[in-house]
Amino acid sequence: MHPALSVIFFTVISGCGYGLLFLLSLILLMQPALLPRSEIVTLLALGALASVAGLIASTFHLGQPQRAWRAFSQWRSSWLSREGVAATASFLPVGALLIAQWQQTDAMPVRISALALMLLAAITVYCTAQIYASLKTIRAWHNVYVAPGYLLLGLIGGASWLLAWHCAFDDGCPDIALGSRGLDWLVILLCIASALLKLAYWRYIDTQPLPASIESATGLGRYGAVRSVEAPHSEENYLTREMGFALARKHAARLRRIVLLLLAPLPIALLVIAMLMRSNAEVAALGAAFAVTLGLFVERWLFFAEAKHVVMLYYAPRGERA
């Protein structure tokens, strides 16, 4: 599948934003007074900004972006529509939490808003995943690894940025403040889990055949082995450009190693350094966040570019089995 940069940017950045909002909500739900108010406000704004930036980027690949509002209408059948609704709804509890910080309300309204934000953030990322996971035509997407993948990778993105900002916020980060509360360990665990999940996903898609064959696509299998001798047109068309993208498959092995390196060993090493250094730990924590984010971009690019669409069977020179 052709990887549209705007969609990659959208899924990565808004995934990180919702991951950050999810974890911040979790902290607020459990201990509403744990973090200083200024930090809560900054992190809320940061998470919301990432989500908004992603949503705006996602309209860049549309042919008629001025009609994007129509995408809120078909939530009864379309995951893309549901995603838009959930993403927009999540700004309500963000607003409520901002007001609560400003008004210095009791813990109860904060907890309720935090719970709502946690749910909506998770639902939004789940809907994003389902946009792809619901497509039967693409084996690499239509499987059980995709939804957990989006959720976990959103969480690792959000967690690494939360940690980095928290360290930076605590000015020199004398004791990696949240370190004692386990956030750095959580990031390390998420790094390992993400890498393992991606490995399992790649193993799965490498062994799965396409959901159809050229024989069943033409119905000609009853006569023998089928292969294309002549495409309908001598030139490329929308289908071959959009569905026939092959660059990533040529370099898949190398790109996968890059993803794994950026998602696990590199950020983990940086975080261990941060934990040992204690002073100036924010530099290492920021490095880890950047590594994870870059890893997510490559991962998402591969997610699109590696995926094969069944329609390409009609163009395959030899019945492709994948």
């Binding site: 000609l220 023998g224 294309s228 009609y314």
Partner: peptide, 11 residues
Amino acid sequence: RVHSFEIEPAQ
């Protein structure tokens, strides 16, 4: 779009 396919018979 009109494709053309070649079939290699099994027999």
